Amino acid sequence: MASQIFVNLPVKDLDKSMEFFTKLGFSFDPRFTAAKAACLILGENTFVMLLLEHFFKTFTKKEISDASKSTEVLIAINVDTREKVGELIQKAVEAGGSICMDPEDHGWMYGHGFADLDGHQWEILYMDINAALQA
């Protein structure tokens, strides 16, 4: 079983991407942050490596998807409250991101999504596990 998860995403401007996620309240692990990459901390064992596109290309022989035109991955983050969903979406838009999906309310699960500066789609979710188990 994996002890840590690192998702790798290509970005056009590392400084702007770091500024964007800092405005959302996230921080970076300085041990894995340098001129070509930054380690965004999502949780205790969950990280997103923001890699400059030219550096990202050194890890794959495939073309990089243009996230503003197609979706290769959806990144979902579970938060503690429904209100936190709205707060993160608002911060993302204020920091230069955009809404990429309408809010969805399934009773036990509520979510909303934004696209970051490079078009990567992030879904912010609140899940009431106890209500889900009763459904």
Rank of each mutant, 00 (worst) to 15 (best):
W122N: 02
T81S: 14
E44Y: 04
F32V: 05
N78I: 04
K84N: 14
I5C: 10
A131P: 08
K62F: 10
A132W: 10
E104A: 09
E44P: 03
D102V: 11
V73P: 00
R82N: 01
E94A: 15
Q134P: 00
Q134F: 01
L50R: 02
F26K: 05
S70D: 05
G86C: 00
A37D: 15
F56R: 05
G96V: 06
A135K: 14
T58Q: 14
A35I: 01
C39E: 03
A67T: 00
W108L: 14
K61A: 01
L88N: 04
I129V: 13
K84S: 13
V79D: 06
I89M: 10
K84D: 11
F28M: 04
C100M: 07
L125E: 00
I89E: 04
V79C: 15
L51C: 02
K36A: 13
Q134V: 00
K91P: 02
K84Q: 15
W108G: 11
S27H: 13
C100H: 12
S98R: 10
L125K: 05
L52F: 08
A76C: 05
A38F: 06
E63K: 13
Y126W: 07
I129Q: 14
L14K: 13
S98Q: 08
G111R: 14
L117S: 03
L125C: 00
I89D: 03
T22Q: 04
F47E: 02
T22F: 00
F59V: 03
T22E: 03
G107M: 09
I99P: 09
P10F: 15
H112P: 04
G119W: 06
L50D: 01
G96I: 08
A131L: 15
T22W: 01
I124K: 07
V79G: 12
M49A: 12
F21I: 04
D118V: 07
D29L: 07
N8E: 12
D15E: 11
E44D: 07
E87F: 06
M1G: 10
N8Q: 14
P30N: 12
I41S: 03
L51E: 03
W122L: 07
L24W: 10
K69D: 01
H120Y: 12
K23S: 09
F56G: 03
Q4C: 08
T60C: 15
A76E: 04
T46P: 04
Y110M: 00
F6L: 15
D128C: 11
E63R: 05
D102G: 11
G111A: 13
T58L: 14
I64P: 02
P30T: 09
G119Q: 01
S27R: 11
I64V: 15
V93H: 12
E19V: 01
Q4E: 13
S27E: 06
L125H: 05
M18Q: 05
V73A: 09
T81P: 06
Q121R: 14
M101R: 07
H54K: 10
V73Y: 11
C39S: 15
A132I: 04
G97L: 05
D13F: 12
E72I: 08
T22V: 00
L24H: 10
I89K: 06
D128H: 12
A131C: 13
L52M: 08
Q134C: 01
G113Y: 04
D15V: 13
T71A: 05
K23Q: 08
F56H: 10
M109G: 03
K12L: 08
I41A: 02
A115T: 03
L24F: 13
E123A: 10
K69Q: 02
E87L: 11
D66E: 09
N130Y: 09
A67L: 07
G111Y: 11
L40W: 00
L24D: 06
N8C: 09
